[in-house]
Design a protein around this nucleic acid. Structure first.
Lengths: 143, 143
DNA sequence: GTAACTGCAAACGCTTTGCACCAAG
DNA sequence: CTTGGTGCAAAGCGTTTGCAGTTAC
């Protein structure tokens, strides 16, 4: 059930070693409630682990991404953020003010997909959906 | 009804001049059935207009994007492609083999959005959806 | 002990900027 | 004629690579 243990097991099974810079990166990504750019992640990790290099961040992100443990979060101007991966039919819903992200289930997209398939003649095999809005804390209070 | 005329009018109304490199770029983007990266677009335009510079491509794309005439197409590894913009509730459906894109209407996403809003407490004000698949020409023929 | 990982510095590639000249309106 | 646009060259910036030393296992 512990996400960190799961990630570490998967990394080790794929021949990766768990070093202390790598553990610090994993902790930071898992603890983050929002998408992070590599440089942003680097700064966060450096607080707990001052000697770390940006290159290590990039290399660790590569491995996490190729294992499907993290995913890119796409933004209007560039798509450099990463975040712990959605599972199954889940998609991100991102707060445009504070960046906080939650996951929601997109199951009923299947109706839309079948309609589009018969209209277009395409065979759809992947989809990609993100919602943007304001999280409860960032909504203007009424009154 | 002619898309090119519409773009040119909008560009002129916003204070832009229609130069011959710019016209060549517009032609190429409008004629393309697929998303194009800046460098790819540059090469295409250069065939018809050999003297053109890559910088002109970038600057023209900036203007087209800020007028909402083109949009970024997001891809797995980076989001550098642009394509003529979707209108209203339309979204892209991209062929993963040949890149050909068609637009489909995503109206009925509103049901999903209301469900997600009540589950999450977020106020959703934007969404972003792309489908990926095989276009009719790229599907393996049966037999 | 071996192979993977690290940090540094340098290289890389896409994108942006500065500039002098050019051309649309 | 005015002002925006052009192409070139150089700068900028995020990302990747080469390498010698280090560390997990």
């Amino acid at each position: 059930m512990d996400l960190k243990e799961k990630w570490i097991t998967l990394l080790q099974e794929s021949g990766c070693r768990i070093t202390s810079p790598r553990a610090a990166i994993i902790d930071t990504v898992i603890d983050s409630q929002r998408g992070l750019e590599p440089l942003e992640l680097f700064d966060l990790v450096r607080k707990a682990h001052p000697g770390i290099g940006l290159v290590t961040v990039y290399r660790t992100l590569d491995r996490l991404e190729s294992l499907g443990l993290i995913q890119r979060v796409h933004q209007e101007n560039g798509c450099h953020m990463v975040m712990k991966a959605a599972i199954g039919h889940e998609h991100y819903l991102l707060c445009t003010r504070c960046g906080k992200a939650v996951l929601f289930d997109g199951d009923d997209l299947s109706r839309l997909v079948s309609r589009v398939e018969s209209n277009s003649g395409y065979k759809v095999n992947d989809h990609w959906l993100q919602l943007f809005g304001l999280c409860p804390a960032c909504q203007p209070s009424k009154g």
